[in-house]
Design a protein around this nucleic acid. Structure first.
Lengths: 215, 215
DNA sequence: TGTACATCAGTGAACGCGCGTTCACTGATGTAC
DNA sequence: TGTACATCAGTGAACGCGCGTTCACTGATGTAC
């Protein structure tokens, strides 16, 4: 077992002139370890930092969270609940103003991006570890809430007569992926961070989807 | 200044029966701190773990990296170089087999996803912090390499006669966003992780782009 | 051909620090009688 | 109306540990003479 980890075979010193090999070995080891670490939800903030920020003693964290892991879990779960609430509110508001289903979908897409923009740290955590860290394989992952919200939005359009060429599920995945990917690029690369870029993108992608659905 | 952090005003104990308020305060504090931490590239692995994995003493890390931060930087930079190399190789290979520009674009998109799938930890790190942590605002960010690769691929199609309705840049951003977003969803949510889902997605999105470009 | 020396690829031992967590405690506030 | 008591929202002090980093060292290998 573990024949792919360098640690098994006792390492021998590199020959003279080959010292740079260690550099490559180190980079490969980091890649391996990072991959293993993906499973646990790592909170890149210490309990004590949080306590300091709140203005309480570090032990007071344990009044509400059993350990650090539970805190991370709670933050992500809270994030899912809030983003879904924001989308739902945007939908309700748009509907109250007499928007059609397409405009309501766009409103929800924008609400999602706005949440991502204003809660960058939290959304990173939300998508920062895979399902296995949320206990039971399927049912309990709080991302289900968000997935259901997207699916509802897409279905609402179907009920109003739109026909998605790739089907509701694929359309929901497509929209969610595109928005999150665009946000990730926007936030993590060299672009200046102008919120309008995101809004323009939302408009374009929702328009394209609607156009193809109405054809 | 800092009127938005709870730590400024000395906290007073919650009234009886309101103990749950602390929970909300803590979650809000974590969100604030996570947002601040986005700027620095945090390597969720210790130097000593890496050294153990490689099979060397912890201090030997300093033979190649000035500190932990430089190691994180090097891992990300290496990742960018490798993903670009993989895309370039896929393109060259497809071209050698007589593929047209569309097929070559698809080959590069697939190479990107394959890299993301096999180097999940590294790609997380690559997109896990924003540009400011890479020194000079624009020029030095190694993501530039990848951006240029996408742009080249899109331009190659233009040179072969394709006309992108949204322009080359927007098309490149769209493709990159969609792929990365789909990957992020695939890896971090409740779906079973079946590589074919990604391949199917790549096919569909590239096909859609090409169809709209040829019209 | 032998040997002194420089270089290279690392290691041994230790530092001070902040971390997650535990245990026993406090002091204000509401409640029963 | 007074007082004993339970409850609540936390804190004080301490633990052992692994971390990032520093400094001085080692021992094998190639090179100049």
């Amino acid at each position: 077992m573990n024949e792919d980890t360098a640690a098994d075979t006792t390492r021998r010193r590199n020959p003279r002139g080959q010292g740079d090999r260690l550099r490559a070995d180190i980079l490969a080891a980091v890649a391996r370890l990072l991959d293993q670490k993906l499973t646990d939800n790592h909170l890149p903030v210490s309990l004590r930092e949080v306590a300091r920020e709140v203005g309480i003693a570090a032990q007071s964290m344990y009044l509400h969270f059993a350990d650090k892991d539970q805190l991370a879990r709670a933050v992500a779960e809270d994030g899912y609940q809030r983003v879904v609430a924001a989308m739902r509110d945007a939908d309700t508001e748009a509907a109250a103003l007499g928007a059609d289903v397409g405009e309501r979908l766009r409103a929800q897409a924008n609400a999602f991006c706005t949440f991502a923009r204003t809660e960058r740290g939290v959304i990173r955590l939300m998508f920062g570890h895979n399902s296995s860290s949320f206990g039971e394989p399927d049912q309990t992952h709080p991302a289900r809430l968000l997935w259901q919200q997207w699916l509802d939005a897409i279905h609402t359009c179907e009920n109003a007569g739109l026909d998605w060429p790739d089907g509701a599920e694929q359309t929901a995945i497509h929209l969610w992926s595109a928005l999150f990917g665009r946000f990730a690029l926007w936030t993590s690369t060299f672009e200046r961070h102008d919120a309008r870029d995101l809004t323009v993108f939302v408009d374009r992608i929702v328009d394209t989807l609607l156009r193809d659905a109405r054809r």
